[in-house]
């Protein structure tokens, strides 16, 4: 078996890579569905119907995609610079903590100021959480994957302490949750019905902004240069450490905004089940988007549809909801393969 680079990769071939990956993932999960005894077309039809079958379903799918757009962007920016931030989950909660600290009555501003203010403090908190890992990486070459992963657990325990202890809402009837975000800080709903909120607009704006930054700004150029070849970037006069640090702060900031959006937009208050692994799913989103900030939007909507749809599917027929997580994991692996196959070709003779 010989793997050799294709002489040229057409836009179509590159663009179709994630589509092939998704089809491959769906085909592999069909094996599991077959095992449950349900007919495969029925199961996938129910999944599709659950995600897009009604105005309510579409509303729910878009709502669920908001945190995934943010965490997907966070991962896409970081991975572009080969900074492997696997801590979006922790940074999301850091943002949620900031939104709770400042948003539950400490400061009251009119909504026009309050919402941006909460977004900014959330982003700062998310970025702040990455300062230690990124400095350890640039100064002492400590692997950021492990440090960011371990910090996820630390932050989650901190949240657990705060909402069971000092921040516990006395009105919550014993449930461990923090006080509600004040009305001025709540992200208003976009439609009369359903849970879709302003977070979607902010997430879409963030995608476009990050795309423009990566594409047109000097910083974006530096981030890409550092990612392609850090040695060459350093040689050409780019301050690699500085670029990696800025990348990390942007990445953490985006993940932090996911936390604000979930706290101030969807739930209204901080709980321990604020995120069912949005930080980790963000990795799948970014990979399906091939690290393209605009590609993050459809990728997030697709994976959100998988979650929302499989909830509906498992209610209707006897398939464990974990099928959605399997699909997410498989699609990460499948997209790695399909992107490689779009750039390389395999020849079977020796």
């Amino acid at each position: 078996m010989i793997i050799e680079p294709r002489p040229s990769v057409s836009v179509l071939r590159a663009g179709l890579a994630p589509v092939w990956a998704i089809l491959a993932a769906l085909a592999l999960c069909a094996v599991l569905i077959f095992w449950t005894g349900t007919s495969i077309p029925t199961a996938y039809f129910l999944l599709f119907k659950g995600a897009f079958g009604s105005a309510f379903a579409i509303n729910e799918t878009l709502t669920r995609s908001i945190p995934l757009i943010f965490t997907g962007l966070a991962v896409a920016v970081a991975f572009r610079a080969k900074f492997y931030n696997i801590g979006a989950e922790g940074q999301l909660y850091a943002g949620a903590l900031a939104a709770t600290y400042f948003g539950t009555g400490m400061i009251t501003l009119p909504p026009v100021l309050m919402i941006p203010f909460l977004m900014i403090v959330g982003a700062l908190a998310g970025g702040a959480l990455l300062i230690v890992p990124v400095l350890l990486k640039t100064r002492m070459k400590v692997d950021e994957v492990v440090t960011t992963l371990l910090l996820n657990f630390v932050v989650l325990l901190l949240v657990s302490y705060l909402i069971e202890g000092p921040w516990k809402d006395p009105m919550s009837l014993g449930w461990p949750q923090a006080a509600a975000v004040i009305d001025e800080g709540v992200l208003p709903p976009l439609l009369a019905k359903g849970r879709l909120h302003l977070g979607l607009v902010i997430a879409l704006a963030a995608s476009v902004l990050i795309w423009a930054m990566m594409r047109f700004s000097v910083l974006g150029y530096e981030i890409r240069a550092v990612g392609y070849n850090a040695g060459a970037a350093e040689f050409s006069g780019i301050n690699v450490s500085r670029t990696v640090i800025i990348t990390a702060l942007i990445s953490g900031g985006l993940a932090g905004m996911a936390g604000v959006s979930e706290t101030a937009g969807l739930k209204g208050y901080l709980t321990l089940d604020l995120s069912p692994g949005f930080g980790y799913t963000g990795i799948a989103v970014a990979m399906l988007a091939q690290l393209n900030p605009l590609g993050v939007i459809p990728a997030a909507i697709f994976l959100s549809a998988v979650y929302v749809g499989s909830d509906a599917m498992s209610r209707a027929i006897n398939i464990p909801t974990y099928i959605a997580d399997v699909l997410v994991g498989v699609s990460v692996l499948a997209v790695l393969c399909s992107v490689m196959l779009s750039q390389y070709r395999v020849r079977w003779r020796t």
Binding site: Y280, D325, G329, L333
Partner: peptide
């Protein structure tokens, strides 16, 4: 990371 997501979910 993909293996971890896939293996745990499976």
């Amino acid at each position: 990371i993909g293996i971890t997501l896939f293996a745990s979910a499976l």
